[in-house]
Simulated assay, not measured.
Amino acid sequence: MKKVNLLIGALLCVSFSYTQNPVDKEDKTNPIVFIETIFGYAGGNAHGPTLGAEINYQLQKNLFSLRYIYQTRFNFDFAILGLVGLPIITNDLNINELSALYGYRNVTDGHSWSFSGGLSTNFVSYKTRTDVMITRDFEVYMGFPFEINIKWFKKEKKRFRAYYGLIPIGKPTSFGRSVGFKFYGNIGKMSYVGLGLNYGFGWHKRY
């Protein structure tokens, strides 16, 4: 969890630094580069909450992405207290996924849709229970990540607004926010499929 928070914080700091150098109003050659955070829930072998971050670069219709996902698995169990069994939630598996993806992205006015697939390295830690103790084991395996995205962003250049969109900064710029949905997953030894929310910053189209 700490790794996810640090990565998200670093990416957001980089994003805000770009707002200090907005693209000139007459310059229509801005690149399509954006980052996004991922908040979701997945089912499958690794069923549970998802946190992540992604860096994207688009060249024509081609989309290149680097994705980090922290996927954890929750199970329901019972703790015996006297003669009463109390339901509890336990965490017995964590996955740190590092992925490189390639796909197609189409932009229309203020929204876009895309689909991508690729390869990933997955670092897994899980608990193994015996009659006398609980041990934690580690494993690394390759996977096949995929995702489908739809997101919305501003249609034209506007002044960037900081502090939850309340305070406008600088001149009209192509840099802005985005929000959308992500259908994502990974096929491998510990497969999962999920649905989440995207919240991003960057240059989402050519203005």
Rank of each mutant, 00 (worst) to 15 (best):
G9Q: 07
L98Q: 09
K61T: 10
E139C: 08
N45M: 03
K171T: 13
T29S: 15
M133A: 15
A53P: 00
L59G: 01
S17P: 00
I8R: 11
Q71R: 05
S65A: 14
G85Y: 12
V14Q: 13
T37Q: 11
G43H: 05
G165K: 09
S174D: 15
T108N: 13
I69M: 13
V4W: 14
N186W: 01
F74W: 09
E156C: 00
R136K: 15
F201C: 06
G143E: 03
L119C: 08
A100K: 02
P22C: 07
F175T: 01
D77S: 15
F175N: 03
I187G: 04
I150C: 04
F34Q: 01
L101F: 07
V23P: 02
E36T: 12
D24S: 14
E97G: 02
N21S: 14
V193Q: 07
R177L: 08
P22V: 06
F201H: 10
G44S: 05
E147C: 11
K182N: 14
H204C: 01
G48F: 01
Y57Q: 09
M133D: 15
T50S: 08
L86H: 11
G143R: 01
K157M: 15
K189P: 00
F153I: 07
L63G: 03
N91H: 06
L195M: 04
L59S: 14
R105Y: 05
V140W: 08
I38N: 08
R161H: 11
G40M: 02
A162W: 03
K189I: 03
G110T: 00
E156W: 04
V107C: 05
P22K: 07
P49Y: 06
I95Y: 01
Y163K: 12
V4T: 14
K2Y: 09
L66T: 10
R105K: 15
V33R: 13
I32P: 04
P168N: 08
F153E: 05
V140C: 11
G110D: 10
L12R: 12
K2V: 09
W152G: 12
N45S: 11
E139M: 10
N96V: 02
W152P: 00
L119I: 15
E97M: 11
F153Y: 15
T37W: 02
Y207Q: 13
A42N: 06
R161D: 03
T90K: 13
Y184K: 03
K28A: 12
R67T: 12
R129G: 07
R73L: 06
V84W: 07
W203T: 09
K61D: 12
Y184E: 00
L166E: 11
R177F: 10
N62G: 06
G202S: 02
Q60I: 04
F146D: 01
T173G: 09
E54W: 00
N149P: 00
K61H: 14
Y207G: 11
K61S: 14
S15P: 01
V23C: 07
K127N: 11
Q20R: 14
F201W: 14
M190S: 10
G110F: 07
D137R: 11
K182R: 15
G44E: 02
T128F: 10
N56G: 03
E97I: 07
G52P: 02
